[in-house]
Each structure stands twice: as C-alpha cells, then as structure tokens.
Design a protein around this nucleic acid. Structure first.
Lengths: 231, 231
DNA sequence: TGACAATGACTGACTAGTCAGTCATCATAT
DNA sequence: ATATGATGACTGACTAGTCAGTCATTGTCA
C-alpha cells in the first residue's frame, strides 16, 4: 500500500504505440472500424496463444508472452477471454472447428475406396503432419487428462466422427471386395493409427530419425488393400 | 535476520513423525540402517513424483505436493535431486531403465513369428496399456518437446531399439513366408502403431468409448499375418 | 559394554521471484 | 461529448529453492 503514492507519470509516454492512422493505403475510407480492429486483435491473440500453448503447454505459458507476441497489452486479452483456462479451451475449439467442417464436407464417394482413402491420407499429410494442427493433436494428448472438457469436445467432434467415417469407408471397401479383413470395420483405429504415429513422430523424433510419412502411409494402405501394381 | 530470534520451538514436535523404532516386525534386527532408510525415502519420492508428474504434467506439479505424498519434507527432495527439472529427467530414466532391460532380455526366437509377436503384444497389454508405464508414454509425448534430453533418451533407449527389434522380427516373418508385405520391414512403426494408439486412447477416451485393446491388436495381427483359422 | 562425540539425513520456515488477473487511466471512433 | 476499447502498473497468491537447526544413528574410546 505504501509503495506507490505517485502514479500516472510514465504511462502516457508509451501511448505512441497504438495504431495512429487506422486507414488503408488508398484515399480516405477508414478500413478499420472498431469492430474490425477488435476482430483483428482477437485473431492475433488466438494466433499468438496457439503458438505459445503448443510450444510450452498450458501451465508453462505466460499470458504476458501471449500479449507481447500478439502485440497487445495483457488487459486486452481479458476483453476477449474470461481467463487463461477458458481461453485455452476456446482456442482448441476455434482451431478444431474448421477441421470438423472439412470432415463434414467429405467428397462424394467416387472411384475406388483405396483412392478415397488415399485422397484422405494426402490431405492429412499436407494439412496436419508437421503443421500447427499436428502440434495441436500433441497438445490435446498432453493436456487432455487435465482438461476433460477438451478431451470430450475433441472426442465428440473429431475422433468419433473420424472413426465413424473410416468405418463407413472400410465397410464400403469390404462390400466392394477391396478389403479382405472383415474385422477391420470393428477397429477403424487400425486404419488411422500410422497417421497418428506419424504426427507424434514428427514432433518428437524428427531430429533423430526423419520419417517419410507419405511412404509409410502408402505401405500401410498396401497392407490393407493388398499391393498395388501401379507405381 | 532480525526476524527470528525464537526458533527451535515447534520443530521438535514434528519429530514424532520420523520412524520411531526403525525395526521390522520380527525380533530385534534393525532393518533400517541410515542408508536403507535413505534409499526407502528416495524410492518414496520417486514414486510420489511419478504419480504427480503423470497427473499434472511437469510445470503444474508442485514439489510441496510430491513431498507431502512421499511423507517427506520438501528439503529432503533436494538431498536426492538437484532441482525440479533434473529430478523430472532422472525420474523418466529410472522408470524406463527396467523396460530397456526387459527389451534386451528378449526370449529366444522359438515358434512362429506370429507367436513371438503375440507374446510381445500380450506383455505390452499387461504391462503398459492402462498402467503407469502407459501414462509415462503420454507424459513423454507431452513434455518431450520441452525436454529434448528426455526425448533423446527415450528415442535412443526405447524407440530405436524397439523399432530395430520389430524390424528383425518382420524380416524373419518375411523370410519364413509368414508375412507377405515385404515393405513392412521398412516401417516397423506400422506394426506398433495400434499398440501406441491403444495406450493413448485409454488415457484420453476410455471414459467415452472403452477400447478392447487386446481384440484390436489381434485384428491388426490378422491383417499382417493373414487370418488365423484357430479361435 | 556403555557413554559420549561426530555425522549427516531430515526438517520446514523463509526468501526471492513469478504470474494470473484487476483497474485507474487514457485514446479514439462514433 | 461520451461510451467503449485499450493499456500496463499493480496486487496478491503461489512456489522453487535455501539453510540454520535438530536428532537418530554410527563410530570411538575407556
């Protein structure tokens, strides 16, 4: 209490930072209404927070660091999120939702099942393995037990749907005679397992022994569908 | 300095805690020499720390909690470990070493390759999935990126050996005609992937959808070795 | 053998530092 | 003009790590 009788001396100086003009390069149309700027800031915070949480985990991440990375004051974070915990949960949702949307917009079943699965694997390679989304998977594995809400959400929105989708694909493959192993439909996890391992491998062991995920998935599909004759 | 003229008042009272007799249940042989007691305490700390780290992760674990759980004062921890971080690293080593020993003491290759792999899978089921060792795997996935030393160690001692062993097994299987897919030897990860997924699944999603890991592994082996005729 | 001294394992109150969350103050779009 | 966004200094709770002091055990000597 007795520590700081004088206040309001320095703070005004720092003010120089906050966007002075807030217009785009053209003539006079204000490109940033308050709402727009706020949305941009929110996005910056989400981006920065994702980066930090992925790199350090929930407990070790400092809000100060997130704020700094987002180019925002700490207080600003609290204009957008209730607290660190709900911020983390919301974050995971924000990043996952587009993934779910993608899952729901499955391409119509054209061509062989193998082709379908290959397309799927290709997308997975490109958009998950070695990307921030891949790190998110690791983050969920890491923090899931301490954030049941996140584990629940992830299971409901991604895992159960993914498993169901894969099961449908496998059953189609069995019906068409492309897949021999009938029991595979009971454990679609087997179909996905190498892909998940690839994700984890990349973020843990890539330094020691890089893994050619694409080739591995190809071998795995050969195992399930039988060897291909084409290159 | 000027704060504590009085001391030595309370501490003596707490002394009641430390083993009063230090003998075993039989007659008069002192079972706990100083060295023995110290070793017991160290073991208690390791056990407690493992529990806490697995449950909360590195950053969120409090040394006070570890001490309390181990029935030891906080200072005691520092008699055995340099600091929290090296304690964590040492811990992982301590738990992993027996696993490595187990790996090195592989049973002599008797019977079919499938039998060998099945034995292996059986052990894995019993001793890893759903046990503290399984949680350790998750912990390494979670903290590995922040503890390169641990990821290194784990890769060197467990992963690379495991992969090498599996590869040998697969090559044997190919040579004996039990395994068709020759490329499998290039990615032994595929053989192990469902087991790893089972470990992770149990600690994340067991509540939502329990997974019959044993059955899943059987199906997976059927996929690799071809369907079995026996029940 | 018994008494006494030396040892060092053990303790827990304490320090120094960290960080989530608050709020008085200021800036600015409307 | 003013309502709302934004700021960052500040607070208080919390915790890793320290260290002076205690005492059971061990070693030694008469």
């Amino acid at each position: 209490m007795s520590k700081k009788p004088t206040k309001a001396a320095t703070p005004s100086a720092a003010r120089a930072k906050g966007r002075p003009d807030a217009r785009d390069g053209s003539d006079g149309a204000p490109v940033s209404s308050r709402a727009t700027r706020a949305a941009e800031r929110r996005a910056a915070i989400v981006e920065a927070a994702m980066e930090e949480f992925v790199a350090r985990g929930f407990a070790a991440t400092r809000l100060d660091d997130i704020a700094k990375r987002a180019g925002v004051a700490k207080g600003t974070i609290y204009l957008h999120f209730k607290d660190k915990e709900s911020m983390f949960e919301e974050l995971v949702r924000i990043v996952i939702v587009p993934v779910v949307a993608r899952l729901n917009a499955l391409p119509p079943p054209t061509g062989s099942v193998r082709e379908l699965v290959e397309t799927f694997a290709g997308n997975f390679l490109k958009e998950v393995i070695g990307t921030r989304r891949g790190d998110l998977v690791r983050l969920i594995v890491a923090e899931g037990p301490r954030f049941p809400a996140i584990a629940d959400f992830y299971y409901r929105e991604v895992v159960s749907r993914g498993i169901a989708g894969m099961r449908a694909l496998i059953e189609l493959g069995i019906a068409r005679g492309e897949i021999r192993q009938k029991d595979l439909a009971r454990y679609p996890q087997i179909l996905v397992a190498p892909a998940m391992i690839a994700v984890i491998w990349q973020s843990l062991f890539a330094r020691h022994a890089p893994l050619d995920a694409e080739e591995m998935l190809r071998v795995h599909l050969d195992l399930i569908f039988g060897e291909r004759r084409t290159t």
